[in-house]
């Protein structure tokens, strides 16, 4: 698989990262290097090998169904560029 500038531009857009037109070829090149490495990994025969999901064998930690958090609207909103009436306010997004 090979990544061209158009694909790099699409990935940047999906990630909402602004990339200048002239930087796209270099970015695509970097992607290709990464994918090349992954292709190399894919050569390893992993038939019958369970995917490793954790370095130590651990059970997913659970919480009980108890309300322990919340009631901190001021803190939640404190980093917002704009907040009004207890809401985050953003440029209008309507379908």
């Amino acid at each position: 698989m090979s990544i061209d500038s158009a694909t790099a531009a699409k990935v940047a857009k999906l990630a909402r990262i602004k990339v200048e037109e002239e930087d796209l070829p270099a970015l695509a090149q970097e992607f290709n290097a990464i994918l090349g490495f992954i292709e190399q990994l894919e050569e390893v025969d992993v038939d019958g090998v369970e995917p490793m999901v954790s370095v130590t064998p651990m059970r997913l930690k659970r919480r009980e169904d108890v309300v322990t958090d919340g009631n901190q609207a001021a803190k939640v909103l404190s980093n917002a560029p704009d907040a009004r009436e207890g809401f985050f306010s953003v440029p209008k997004v309507v379908e």
Binding site: R63, G70, N71, A73
Partner: peptide, 21 residues
């Protein structure tokens, strides 16, 4: 009572952004 991955309440109709972890 609580959300899927946090301890905030699921109660409907609370003040905006008050049930937020």
């Amino acid at each position: 009572r609580a959300k899927l991955f946090s301890g905030a309440s699921t109660q409907f109709g609370a003040e905006p952004n008050s049930n937020v972890a």
